[in-house]
Design a protein around this nucleic acid. Structure first.
Lengths: 201, 201
DNA sequence: TCAGTAACTAAGCGCTTGCTTAGCATGTTG
DNA sequence: CAACATGCTAAGCAAGCGCTTAGTTACTGA
């Protein structure tokens, strides 16, 4: 995700300095991981001293919580929008996979934090994002079940299938990078085709 | 992966104390991550003092390197064995996905370390495992290409398909746990079916 | 029986970390 | 113009980290 795209996720009502710190935290948490990132790393990348971080955020963990919450909320919004896209479960699933995959390719830095730093979250923040994750998984499963009921998908284990669908998208965040030859949109389209086949469409 | 299964990966020629340290490191690196794990955590779990670790291993990073190397070597062996399993590319792929998926379910602790702690590896050790990873990906891609050539698979982008196949298996390590209702073997069989469909078999 | 070795522990070292505090510069308001 | 508020820095604190060292214990071999 380019800086512009990060900025879109944290736009508006925050002071410029707070956003610079947040964006610096996103890059560093994605590149090195939460625990290997220091407050000095974040502050330096934002052009500030370490103490400045505490003017805007209560703690290092609070930065992670904010990034995780916003990243999950954006993912859920995308999934729910795709699930409401059409009356046809097949078209819903195609759209869902295309958008979910492209989001994880384009936003692979946020995607890595969202998916791989759950255990670094304080317990309360973890509960919040665990609920968002359940809703994402439930929405995907529902689209599959609707497709099975409509006779356009053929898979007996909808839970396993839902897991496979979300796995494909999530794992993109692990391997996709700026040097990848496919655009996020191309990858999304290809994965859309692969998933419909997988579901027996 | 149970302790017995970990022990199988590091059996034989190592002193008992070194193996206890290694197994303790596997559990802690998988649960907390490399950087959040301290040498005191590892030593205590092995029933020793922190200094004892340095009798058997030169550093904390050396423990990670050993785990990563062995885990990757085991994964590559499994993939190459499956690719040599049959003359029929379809049967090869089925076997490959079943074994790869089951391995990541059963060995999800090692799988997490192998896949998510690459950036914590010293550069030399990273090169070693990067090569192993390339061979894994190449082997999967070759099985797909053989299937396309034989007319049993239908996918124009073999590289994207290979990536999707390995993503499904690898991501299992992220979510599978002891409470998962499917056995690793069941999951492998189901994923085998899903992948063959995905490849247009 | 004694010297040497291996494996370990208790204690510690130098350094780094997350976070705090006192002070400063700038801008705003009455 | 003075008082106040905000945002920041320099410096520092307490805790913890990876790793080292001196000493101890148990074992082995001559």
């Amino acid at each position: 995700m380019t800086s512009q795209q990060h900025a879109d996720l944290w736009s508006g009502e925050r002071p410029e300095a707070a956003r610079r710190l947040l964006l610096a935290a996103v890059e560093s948490f994605a590149t090195r991981g939460f625990h290997a990132t220091t407050t000095r790393d974040i502050a330096t990348a934002a052009g500030m001293s370490p103490a400045a971080l505490y003017i805007h955020y209560p703690s290092k963990a609070a930065l992670l919580a904010e990034i995780s919450r916003q990243g999950h909320a954006a993912t859920l919004a995308l999934v729910e929008e795709a699930a409401a896209h059409s009356a046809d479960p097949l078209e819903r699933m195609r759209r869902l996979v295309e958008e979910f995959t492209a989001w994880h390719a384009r936003g692979h830095t946020v995607g890595r934090i969202v998916n791989y730093e759950l255990r670094a979250l304080p317990a309360e923040d973890f509960e919040v994002v665990a609920e968002l994750r359940r809703r994402i998984e439930d929405t995907v499963k529902q689209v599959i079940e609707d497709g099975v009921a409509a006779g356009v998908f053929h898979t007996p284990e909808t839970r396993t299938a839902a897991r496979a669908v979300t796995s494909l998208g999530i794992d993109v965040a692990r391997w996709y990078n700026e040097r990848s030859s496919e655009t996020p949109q191309q990858l999304g389209e290809r994965y859309g085709v692969l998933v419909l086949r997988m579901l027996g469409a």
